[in-house]
Amino acid sequence: MDEVALVRAAQNGDLDSFNHLVLVYQEMAFNVAYRMLSDEDAAEDATQAAFLSAYRSLAGYRGGSFRAWVMRMVTNACYDELRRRQRRPTIPLEPMDNEDEEEIESPAWLADDSPSPEQSLEKGELDEAIQSCLNGLADEFKAVVVMVDIEGMDYQEVSVAINKPLGTVKSRVARARSKLRECLQSYWELLPAQFRLEDEDKV
């Protein structure tokens, strides 16, 4: 049964057909949620909430890319979780002073055992380097660059997923890449060889 037939059957209340679709997209949904939330447990909860929301909102699906429509549910679930975190923050992400933006030498910060960029890559943790840079992006930029560059979605699909015009997607992708380029600058020399530029005249 193709995707269109599965969606139609699911819209008529066939839960098995919907679960077929869940199996197709659950890994992508989970990866998007993980990159957005940077936490596996939270990503798991958001993914489940997204599929539950998708099932309840199936009547509102009017065709087009079902993958993009599912990703809209995922990004909405992630935004909900991020808003919840903002309402009830647990620990400060960065120990910055509000006025001069200098680091505060608090014991908690000093005790932070987060790996430096060198350590991360020494451990072969390219994944953590990427995630660290992604965490420095605003949520709306993060969602777009994750879907375009990590999940390989096209601009049109992302436009559906975030419910914004194509020009907004284009602009956000560019700005996110520009910021990520700056962030990854500290990792350039430690990147695997295939990612290094041939001309090593970088500052």
């Binding site: 869940v22 989970f30 798991e44």
Partner: peptide
């Protein structure tokens, strides 16, 4: 290219309803 090389994570479980 770096972003595209980001390792993918397996879904920890099925999310079927």
């Amino acid at each position: 290219a770096v972003l595209r090389a980001a390792p993918r994570r397996r879904a920890p479980r099925n999310f079927t309803l």
